[in-house]
Amino acid sequence: MNTTDLATYNFAYLDEQTKRMIRRAILKAIAIPGYQVPFASREMPMPYGWGTGGVQVTAAILGPDDVLKVIDQGADDTTNAVSIRAFFQKVANVAVTTKTREATIIQTRHRIPEEKLTAGQTLVYQVPIPEPLRFLEPRETETRKMHALEEYGLMHVKLYEDIAKNGHIATTYAYPVKVEGRYVMDPSPTPKFDNPKMHRSEALQLFGAGREKRIYAVPPYTDVVSLDFEDHPFEIQTFDKPCALCGAKNVYLDEVVLDDRGGRMFVCSDTDHCEDRCANGHRGHLAYNKEAAE
């Protein structure tokens, strides 16, 4: 057994043939916004379901001049984000950052950064189940036909049943969108709070689903409209209070349990956004007071 061979991997891990295959899929995905391009997803050295699709997309586009940011739940320091960032540092020696505005590529799971993304940036989503119709129809053979025929009645029926039963659309994340008036697309399990950020974003948005072997894309300045009804228009989550640390309003907040007596606080899910605001002197009502502590 030649064990020395085991440690030699190509730049960004993937072999060049695999990168070409993924790159071709990305170009077609961009040309057909919201359509899921099948690709021959590879086994990655992290488990399926843990971001292998996003990792393959990032590995295929990443170059030596890129600056990479990886977030999970909006945070740079969640364990899986740390692990994926460390992977790219190891296999591509790429510069990394936690600052949204410094990044050229942002790989994300479950959030879109609060700060508006710009034209030089690419947002890479990790996607578990790319098919928005999957929970209505488990068969790929059927859902593919529905997309081909633009037959999305089932989705509207499902959303309307929610309204009839609960008075609300009971979908709070992975809320389906229609891209450029044609394909219904799963935005990945981001909270619907983030859906409006996808609409006509300046950044290129790429979606990778490794286990399900699909890549899709939303080019910049592309219409991304959340499905709704005239009498029940789409609305995003709102929070009663601002972030307890930085005082930000109109951002997505995490609920943090403080004690066993029902104590709760709400803080920014986007940790970079929160830290940036704190550094610029913004204070929430539970902000850590440095001067007082010293």
Binding site: T52, T79, H110, A174, P191, F193, D254
Partner: peptide
């Protein structure tokens, strides 16, 4: 390998979706 990855991914943080 696919199955174990996806079943076990449920232990990753999902607090953003759970909050929603």
């Amino acid at each position: 390998v696919q199955a174990t990855g996806f079943v076990e991914h449920l232990k990753l943080p999902h607090y953003v979706d759970f909050q929603a």
